[in-house]
Design a binder for these strands. Structure first.
Length: 425
RNA sequence: GGAGAGGUGGCAGAGUGGUUGAAUGCGGCAGUCUCGAAAACUGUUAUACUGAGUGAUCGGUAUCGGGGGUUCGAAUCCCCCCCUCUCCGCCA
């Protein structure tokens, strides 16, 4: 949620933020509603104060055995006015909240201004020793490799559930499990995260808090009967661990890492990069979430990206970092790096991770605060999260980059103690 | 799914219609005492919105799981919903 006070105090900044994110300018509408709301509150509070005052007199008069009927009549009419005003106020606040809830976060000043993904900025590229973008011969793609070694079965996955629900088999299933454990262990042991294993199904309050609702409603699996949603990312349950809670300053930063299956309807994106693992409805992801003090959040974002990079370097997977431009930023993010891994068969980069600073945007929606020692006041903290990483596209890069000319797959050293084997095929 | 109990301030726990934002205890903070600390004693200790003020702050309103109702007046009475616990049933 965007802070109404920020809009009120600096409408031009809010307007710029909206335009930079390719959003409709609704600042004037917000300002008008806000003014109406405050006018109504002021009037009604005065009436209520009067009513409370008169009401107290009723008690005193009755105690003394007097007749209070004249005063009671006065309170009654005050009550009617208050009721009307409150009804009006409710309508105004409903409208205001609706607009505010759909107002995206404002990009940080370090974010390049741009309209679309084409204007994202590559900030780093990393490749393992001896790596070359020009492949000798034709590399098999992950679907061919999956079939050849009988480790991935997209057809049967589709039979069981529909397209986009992959089935892993044999060493493929083991490799997937190994990847998840390897990533979790590195974040826990080397990066200092606390492991959590969250629910994969959440209520609407949780979805609102992290910003999936109301905007992304159509992109989520929803169970009407129970009014519950399948999570699109572990970011949702993990960030919501501390919804409506507050920390002491000394407790921060709090860092969690957790695995979850992720479910996305991907409505409207059929056919686009959708073969095999490139776009699926269910995938596995290890997610890092941080709760930090506002002044630390941009430093923590860089560290978060570094934590994800460590995984890729340990796995010898070529990758690059993209700093997303304002127009490509998600609804809740103020700044975001995507990590893309190289696919030799597709001959392109694949998005495998997204690391974002949400500043106080989610904290405001989720009401997560901390008490600052110096001022003794409660403040909204900043939340961040990043995939570390999603296994589906990582698996594409992992399989394709580690294939030998004979079509074998070499398991990276760091993973071997997790898989229990060093090659596939 | 059935039956019962319960949801009150950071925590524990009183409170069944009228200065109750809420007793008491614990915790926290400040002070006294002490070389220092502990103990003891004293004081203090919620949040949001809103108005005034540069500001410290002051005024008003709301808040006792959530929503609605009764009443001049609700933590307290009524209705609906949510959650937690116990027992029974079912079940991976």
């Amino acid at each position: 949620m965007f802070d109404i006070k920020l809009v009120r105090d600096n409408p031009e900044a809010a307007r710029r933020g909206l335009i930079n994110k390719n959003e409709v300018d609704c600042v004037d509408e917000i300002l008008a509603l806000d003014e109406e709301r405050r006018k109504l509150i002021f009037l009604t509070d005065e009436l209520k104060a009067k009513k409370n005052q008169v009401s107290a007199q009723v008690g005193q008069i009755k105690k003394a055995g007097g007749d209070a009927s004249a005063i009671i009549a006065e309170t009654k009419s005050l009550g009617d006015q208050i009721f009307d005003n409150d009804t009006k106020l409710g309508e105004v606040e409903f409208k205001l909240n609706e607009i505010m809830a759909r107002l995206p976060n404002v990009p940080h000043e370090s974010v390049p201004v741009g309209k679309s993904a084409a204007e994202n900025v590559e900030t780093k590229q990393w490749t393992p020793e001896g790596f070359s973008f020009t492949y000798e011969g034709t590399p098999l793609d992950h679907i061919q490799l999956g079939k050849k070694h009988d480790i991935l079965d997209f057809e049967r996955g589709a039979k069981i559930s529909g397209s986009g629900f992959p089935l892993y088999k044999g060493k493929g299933a083991t490799l997937e499990r190994a990847l998840i454990n390897f990533m979790l262990d590195m974040h826990i042991r080397q990066h200092g995260y606390t492991e959590v294993f969250p629910p994969f199904v959440v209520n609407k309050e949780s979805m609102f808090a992290t910003g999936q609702l109301p905007k992304m409603k159509d992109d989520m699996y929803y169970m009407e009967r129970d009014d519950l949603y399948l999570i699109p990312t572990a970011e949702v349950p993990i960030t919501n661990i501390h919804r409506d809670e507050s920390f002491t300053e000394a407790q921060l930063p709090v860092k969690y890492v957790g695995y979850s299956a992720c479910f996305r309807r991907e409505a409207g994106s059929y056919g686009k990069d959708s073969k095999g693992f490139l776009r699926v409805h269910q995938f596995n992801k290890v997610e890092m979430v941080k709760f930090v003090k506002p002044e630390d959040s941009y430093n923590e974002l860089e560290k978060l990206v570094g934590d994800a990079e460590d995984i890729l370097q340990a796995l010898n997977v070529p990758y690059r970092l993209l700093l997303l431009c304002s127009g490509d930023l998600s609804f809740s993010a103020a700044k975001c790096y995507d990590i893309e891994t190289w696919s030799p068969a597709e001959n392109k980069w694949l998005e495998s991770s997204s690391c974002s600073n949400f500043e106080a945007f989610q904290a405001r929606r989720a009401n997560i605060r901390f008490r600052r020692e110096e001022t003794k006041k409660l403040e909204f903290l900043h939340t961040l999260n990043g995939s570390g990483l999603a296994t589906s596209r990582l698996m594409v890069s992992l399989l394709e980059n580690n294939q030998t000319p004979e079509g074998k797959i070499i398991i990276p050293k760091a993973l071997q103690s997790y898989t229990g084997f060093s090659t596939i095929g």
